[in-house]
């Protein structure tokens, strides 16, 4: 029954902090389904409500309204389902006076397991092998991120939740992290839910994306869909006024001084060019404008970061 359930389901999820004057609606009526076996991006600017949502998935905070289901069960009712979830929430923190290895041991034991061999393997995998015997107090932010990644994977979870996983990592580390996340899904068959405020990050690693802003879900779909969905095609042709009339029959368009902008998908380009050729119009330049996601993300979030 749980084998084919969703990895994550949110139903009308809301969270309000504070009362009266200090009331903040951090998450507002979010409904979302995340299928298994993919990297799902949770994209939003600072203060959008990403961390708050993730905290509710992990029972760290209690929803004001709505339902959370993880791997088919409510973690608030069937707590044990969280044993199959690994997570890194916000900036990683550890017991600074313990070594990296001891921190992982303590966390494993807190989960009720003792697995020194797996911990060693994970420490190697995240390139902390040499520093694992040193106190976490001496670690850089990037090293703590790696340790957190190892911590999230100790129990070999089915669902891994990362809250801004590349925060504090160097470019090489980010690259490595991306590869690692894809491997978790493509090779190991896990589901990854990651939050980010960086579109480029989400675009490069995610299969599906939800955009949230000010606690509300603005849009959700596959990366391809969102990139392609309502993209524009830019055309330079002569004579431009004739091109405008002819293309206007089939597409919505906006004329500019030396070009036209069509609301069309990349897949429409051949048809557009054929139509112009048939009518004897010279085509100088055709470009499917990339990334309406970026436009959308920016238009949603412009000047509105907290």
């Amino acid at each position: 029954m749980t084998a084919n359930s969703m990895a994550i389901e949110l139903e009308g999820l809301s969270k309000v902090f504070g009362r009266r004057k200090r009331r903040v609606q951090a998450v507002n009526n979010i409904s979302l389904k995340v299928e298994r076996g993919q990297v799902f991006g949770f994209l939003g600017p600072n203060g959008a409500g990403k961390t708050t949502t993730i905290r509710m998935l992990l029972t760290l905070i209690f929803p004001t309204q709505g339902q959370v289901r993880v791997l088919g069960q409510s973690p608030y009712v069937a707590r044990d389902v969280l044993k199959r979830v690994g997570a890194v929430v916000e900036t990683p923190v550890f017991y600074n006076y313990l070594t990296g290895r001891q921190n992982l041991e303590v966390l494993a034991r807190t989960s009720g397991t003792n697995q020194p061999a797996r911990i060693e393997a994970l420490l190697k995998q995240v390139n902390l092998g040499e520093r694992a015997g040193q106190r976490v107090a001496t670690y850089s932010l990037g090293m703590r991120q790696r340790l957190a990644l190892a911590a999230a994977l100790i129990e070999d979870p089915d669902l891994v939740i990362f809250d801004e996983p590349t925060n504090g990592m160097d470019p090489a580390g980010i690259q490595e992290m991306r590869g690692f996340i894809r491997e978790l899904v493509d090779v190991q068959g896990k589901t990854v839910f990651l939050s980010s405020h960086l579109l480029s990050e989400v675009e490069q690693v995610c299969d599906r994306v939800a955009i949230i802003h000010r606690g509300e879900l603005k849009r959700e779909g596959s990366v391809a869909e969102l990139l392609d969905g309502s993209s524009r095609v830019r055309i330079e042709a002569a004579p431009l006024d004739r091109a405008q009339v002819i293309l206007g029959e089939g597409w919505k368009l906006t004329p500019y001084e030396d070009h036209l902008l069509l609301e069309a998908k990349r897949a429409d380009v051949p048809a557009i060019v054929r139509r112009l050729n048939e009518t004897g119009i010279d085509v100088f330049h055709v470009a499917a404008e990339r990334s309406s996601l970026e436009d959308y993300f920016l238009s949603v979030t412009q000047g509105e970061t907290v």
């Binding site: 029972t59 760290l60 979830v85 923190v93 017991y95």
Partner: peptide, 17 residues
């Protein structure tokens, strides 16, 4: 004060902790 509850609460029930 260390902010470490977030690491351990998903791993065990609050009563047990």
């Amino acid at each position: 004060q260390w902010g470490t509850w977030k690491n351990i609460i998903p791993r065990s029930s609050r009563v047990k902790l």
